[in-house]
Design a protein around this nucleic acid. Structure first.
Length: 314
DNA sequence: GCGACAG
DNA sequence: ATCTTGTCGC
C-alpha cells in the first residue's frame, strides 16, 4: 500500500460520532510537518464519504474547509451525532479522536535519513568533471521527470531524457526525496552512463537531518550531487545583503551547510547551494557559478523546461 | 496578523 | 509544485 492509501486507511479509523484534526492525522503519519499535506490529501479524497474526510476539523475546534461546501460537512456530522454550532464543534474535547493505530511511516523515513546520513561524503569523488546533469520534476496527476546533461568543457547539451511515473507520496517539507527519488532513479537508468555531477532542485546537506534530496539521491545512487534551492529550508544566512556574483555562508546549528548565492543582478533573492554527496563545498559553488547564465544554473533550467514540456504534451 | 517549512 | 492576466523594470 502506498503512502496516500495508507493515509486514507488512517482516516477510516475515526469513528462515527467523533472528529479528529489535521494535526492529529499528521502525528499519526509520524510528523506534525505533514499537516498541510493531510489537508491536501483530504481535499483529493476519491473515496468520500467511505473515507470520512468530513470528520477532520481544525485543532481549535472550528470546522475547517470541505470540498463540496461546508454545509455538506455540517450535515454529515450532525447525522452522525456530532453537535455543531455555527462554525464550531460543540463539546470538542469529548468528540475528539486521536488514538490512531499506526506504523508512523514518516518516522521510518526519518530513521532512514539518519542512517543514510552516515554515508554522505563531502569531498570530490572524481578527478575531472566531464559532464554535468540537471534534473527536475513537473506534476499534473502523474510526475514527469527531465534530465539534461551538459558537457562541462564546451557547455553543449549532450543528452536529454524524460520519463513519466505515478507519484504516491505528497510533498512534505524535509521528506522531498521520498516523493521524487523514484522518478530521478528512472531518469538515470534510462540515461545509462551517469553524469560526473548531478544538479538537483532542492537541498543537499542543507537540511535539518543533513539529508536533503540531493544527498539522498547521491548516496542511494552512488553519484556526485549538488543541491540548488530557491528558498531557504533551515539555518541562517550570515549576511542578508549579497551583491551580484557574491555569496554568503549558510549555517545550521553552528555548522556550514551551504551558500546563499546571488546568481543574477536581476534578482535580490539568492539561490541556496549545498553539496549533496561526493562533492566539496568549494566545488559545489564553483560548478554552479559556471552554469549561472540566469538565476538558476542551465542544467536545471533546461531540465525544468523539459519536464514541463513532457507534462504539457501528455 | 505574523511567521512560514526545499518541491 | 500548481492555479494564471497583466504589469513592472532593466
Amino acid at each position: 500500500m502506498n503512502f496516500t492509501e495508507y493515509f486514507y486507511s488512517l482516516v477510516k479509523q475515526i469513528p462515527k460520532g467523533k472528529v479528529s484534526t489535521y494535526g492529529a492525522l499528521a502525528r499519526a503519519l509520524g510528523d506534525i510537518r505533514a499537516s498541510r499535506a493531510v489537508g491536501r490529501m483530504l481535499n483529493q479524497n476519491p473515496y468520500a464519504p467511505i473515507v470520512p474526510c468530513h470528520r477532520v476539523v481544525m485543532s481549535d475546534g472550528s470546522l475547517g474547509g470541505f470540498g463540496t461546501g461546508i454545509e455538506k460537512k455540517i450535515k454529515l456530522l450532525k447525522k452522525e451525532g456530532v453537535k455543531v454550532s455555527g462554525n464550531d464543534i460543540l463539546d470538542f474535547e469529548k468528540a475528539l479522536f486521536t488514538d490512531f493505530m499506526s506504523d508512523f511511516p514518516l518516522k521510518k523515513m526519518r530513521n532512514e535519513q539518519k542512517r543514510l546520513r552516515k554515508s554522505v561524503r563531502l569531498e570530490d569523488g572524481f578527478d575531472d568533471i566531464e559532464t554535468v546533469g540537471g534534473v527536475d520534476v513537473a506534476y499534473s496527476h502523474k510526475g514527469f521527470g527531465g534530465l539534461v546533461v551538459y558537457d562541462y568543457k564546451s557547455f553543449d547539451i549532450n543528452k536529454r531524457v524524460s520519463v513519466k511515473d505515478e507519484i504516491d507520496m505528497p510533498y512534505i517539507p524535509t521528506y522531498l526525496a521520498f516523493r521524487e527519488l523514484p522518478l530521478i532513479e528512472k531518469l538515470l537508468k534510462k540515461y545509462k552512463q551517469g553524469p560526473s555531477v548531478l544538479l538537483i532542485d532542492g537541498n543537499g546537506v542543507l537540511h535539518p537531518y543533513g539529508m536533503g534530496i540531493a544527498s539522498h539521491v547521491g548516496v542511494k545512487l552512488d553519484i556526485p550531487t549538488i543541491g540548488v534551492a530557491k528558498k531557504l529550508l533551515c539555518g541562517e544566512q550570515k549576511d542578508d545583503k549579497i551583491l551580484p556574483g557574491e555569496y554568503s555562508e549558510v549555517e545550521y546549528e553552528g555548522n556550514l551547510v551551504g551558500y546563499a548565492y546571488r546568481s543574477s543582478p536581476r534578482t535580490k533573492k539568492p539561490i541556496y547551494i549545498s553539496p549533496g554527496h561526493m562533492v566539496s563545498f568549494e566545488t559545489s559553488l564553483e560548478v554552479i557559478k559556471n552554469f549561472c547564465k540566469y538565476k538558476l544554473p542551465e542544467p536545471i533550467r533546461s531540465a525544468h523546461k523539459l519536464a514541463t514540456e513532457a507534462r504539457n504534451s501528455a
